[in-house]
Amino acid sequence: MRGTLMLSALITIAACGEDGGSTNSQEVITTVTLTFTKAGSTPVTAEFDDPDGDGGDPPTVQPVELSAGMYTMTVGFENRLSSPSESITPEVMDESDVHLVLFTGTAVVGPASPTTSGPLTQSYGDMDANGLPVGLTNTVVAAAGTGTLTVTLRHLPPEEPPVKATDTLSLAKEGGLDAIGGSTDATVDFMVTVR
């Protein structure tokens, strides 16, 4: 029995190393951070955080609490499972032609949201190499009210014809996210209150 164990151990040692899981760390997202910046005031942040990944502890979500006015809203993605924690935002930016952040929910009026009146009016503030929006940087006009803000990071694979196109946002607005191709990398809900 001991002999078998030792033999087994040898094989295990020989087998290790090549199956490295480290290449997968940038595939995991645990945290989505929204940062609202208004000229002359302290930035407001809200975080959806699930530091131990799927399962385990449930995630914590901070509410978005703003005063009325115009904000620059940036979105950050992070993997806190890896040590040290790793920002995914630069990677989304690097591959912005196959990524799109969509903003929907009862709090949002914007290019992808079918909501007609809500406390936040969102417009895209960045573009990929093809002149299409990305959504890491946005302009948001806040007015008094409450609702939910759903932030979705969608991966739109570079197939022929490309899934990310000029009509992607309007398709999503009309038919919801199911009307566009690709797959969802993250989708989180925030409670929004604007005073």
Partner: peptide, 9 residues
């Protein structure tokens, strides 16, 4: 399917 085109393996 990977999000990051650089993800190998």
């Amino acid at each position: 399917v990977v999000r990051n085109a650089a993800t190998a393996g």
